[in-house]
């Protein structure tokens, strides 16, 4: 293998190649999507899904898994569509409270050494419960400024593309290039050595959960900006979508090895898979199954890359 095409670059390129492949397939099947309007429609939901995937990635980075993210995004969407619309101050406070709740979860999981899957599964009931209390029937209204932001029509490049690129770059520099980011990721890779070096693992976990909560809130707000109303189960699918997207984008689940750019690409790829399958006129029964199959396929390719890495 050449010096420039190392296993590491291959690993980084894999998500981008998957995206390119699926995009090419869509353009081939439905050339009309290759336009400003077509792309806008195709990537309509990319922003909230990318934000949720980033939120999941921060949890994966400390070797945990969040099975409540879909419920949490639903809750923040409900708060956005009700309180943030009617009484902005209360809405902002409630959303800040959501972030704090996530930080507290991180502390609880760390201090009591709890399995994140069980805690987050339990919390998903709590989030849905609060969402049902806030918004018993579907409804609410999107605050004007969020609506305006999400329906921006910039010249040349559709808004969702600009938005996800900005998200990817901001998180990339925050987590992958900053000094604090190195410590945060190190805590997932080798918690013991990070602790020996004098960093508080508790602080790391609380920070990561808080950031995850923050992106969860953003995801809910973005979602309401697109749908203009909310309901208590609006983002139910986001739990699995976010995990699959982050994994697809190169997160390794153990060892703090994550990739924000990959995560955003993974999220967009999964979103496009849906459109691709419907353009194929594939039986909609296989929609979920195809997502699973793609996930397995990408994991298999990554395994092959890793193996060649070891051999060389």
């Amino acid at each position: 293998m050449s010096r420039y095409l190392t296993a590491n670059t291959m690993r980084t390129l894999l998500p981008a190649l998957s995206l390119a492949a699926i995009l090419a397939a869509i353009f081939y099947l439905q050339p009309r999507t290759m336009s400003y309007f077509g792309l806008n429609l195709l990537l309509n939901l990319a922003v909230p899904i990318a934000l949720a995937t980033i939120a999941q990635m921060f949890i994966l980075c400390v070797n945990d898994l969040d099975l409540s993210l879909g419920a949490f995004v639903s809750l923040t969407a409900c708060i956005t569509a009700t309180w943030l619309y009617d009484t902005p101050v209360l809405g902002v406070l409630a959303l800040a409270g959501c972030v704090l709740a996530y930080a507290a979860l991180g502390a609880l999981i760390h201090l009591r050494n709890l399995p994140s899957i069980v805690v987050t599964l339990g919390m998903s009931f709590v989030w849905v419960g609060i969402a049902v209390l806030i918004l018993p029937t579907p409804g609410g209204k999107a605050p004007e400024w969020i609506r305006a932001l999400m329906t921006l029509k910039p010249a040349l490049i559709p808004f969702p593309i600009i938005a996800v690129v900005v998200i990817a770059i901001v998180v990339h520099f925050g987590l992958m290039k900053s000094a604090a980011g190195v410590v945060l990721r190190g805590a997932g890779g080798n918690p013991l050595s990070v602790e020996r070096a004098g960093w508080s693992l508790l602080k790391v976990k609380v920070t990561m959960y808080a950031i995850s909560g923050f992106f969860g809130v953003l995801s809910g707000m973005a979602l309401v900006g697109l749908t203009t109303s909310a309901d208590a189960n609006i983002a139910e699918r986001y739990t699995l979508l976010s995990i699959a997207g982050a994994i697809l984008g190169g997160s390794e689940f153990v060892g703090g090895r994550v990739s924000p750019i990959g995560a955003v690409i993974g999220a967009v790829t999964l979103l496009l898979t849906g459109s691709f399958l419907s353009f194929l006129r594939l039986n909609p029964d296989w929609q979920i199954g195809a997502q699973g199959a793609i996930l397995i396929l990408v994991l298999a390719m990554r395994m092959l890359i890793n193996r060649s890495d070891k051999r060389s």
Binding site: N113, G129, I130
Partner: peptide, 20 residues
Amino acid sequence: AGYRLILTGAIIVAVIAISG
């Protein structure tokens, strides 16, 4: 329903936290 869900989740998390 809302309070039921909240309590179910909270009690599960509490039990797990206590026995943790």
